[in-house]
């Protein structure tokens, strides 16, 4: 099934399914609504527990407000639910601690994740928050693939890794922002050291 044909769609774009399956309604933080099948929801441990705890009937789903997912936007949530619908019914991988970890990215997932790094970043955060193990695996594998054949200097650019010096400067800046007096004290201390003074106070 192609990404485009995946059953998860914004509520205003899709017909309500005719099968007698339970479809839950979810709302993103930018007020986009999605209908997701019960089976697809099982891919997310977080959502699965949530709907189990709510104990909604089919009428509740229609009559009560959509379940709000407040820290994920519509664009990201659409990808998440498309992924869940495509992989519904599949076993959730269990980490048995064995190495090497072998993760293959299926064609559907590769196409779904053919997105910019900003959206991929949000997708991983969403997979982590919603505890969707396999989506987290494949999305992290995609990020890992970015390292192939790179030198440390290239890795710094690919993964936006600050050097030790940059980390140190950022730490100092953060400290100064917290306490503006700190810089003055430090400067005074340095000045006294230059003048050969032994004691600061």
């Amino acid at each position: 099934m192609s990404v485009e044909n995946a059953p998860v769609v914004d509520v205003d774009e899709a017909a309500i399914p005719v099968e007698k399956k339970m479809y839950y309604r979810f709302e993103s933080n930018d007020k986009k609504e999605f209908r997701v099948s019960e089976l697809a929801i099982q891919q997310s441990e977080t959502l699965n527990r949530l709907v189990e705890a709510m104990g909604y009937t089919s009428e509740d789903v229609e009559n009560k407000p959509a379940i709000a997912i407040e820290n994920i936007d519509g664009k990201t949530l659409k990808l998440v639910f498309q992924w869940c619908e495509h992989h519904k019914g599949e076993a959730i991988p269990v980490d048995d601690g064995s190495v090497p970890k072998i993760v293959e990215i299926p064609e559907f997932d590769a196409k779904l994740m053919d997105i910019d790094n900003g959206l991929l970043f949000k997708l991983i955060w969403a997979a982590d928050y919603l505890n969707i193990v396999q989506l987290l695996n494949v999305s992290c594998k995609k990020v890992a693939n970015m390292a192939q054949g790179k030198t440390p200097a290239q890795l710094r650019r690919v993964y936006l890794l600050p050097s030790d010096e940059e980390d140190e400067a950022a730490k100092r800046a953060a400290q100064e922002a917290q306490d503006p007096r700190a810089r003055e004290v430090e400067e005074e201390f340095e000045e006294r050291k230059r003048q050969g003074g032994n004691s600061f106070f």
Binding site: D116, N117, G118, L120, F121, I124, W125, D128, V143, M146, R157, V158, Y159, L160, L161
Partner: peptide
Amino acid sequence: MGFPILKLP
């Protein structure tokens, strides 16, 4: 555009 890996969970 790079990917800010260290800002992931």
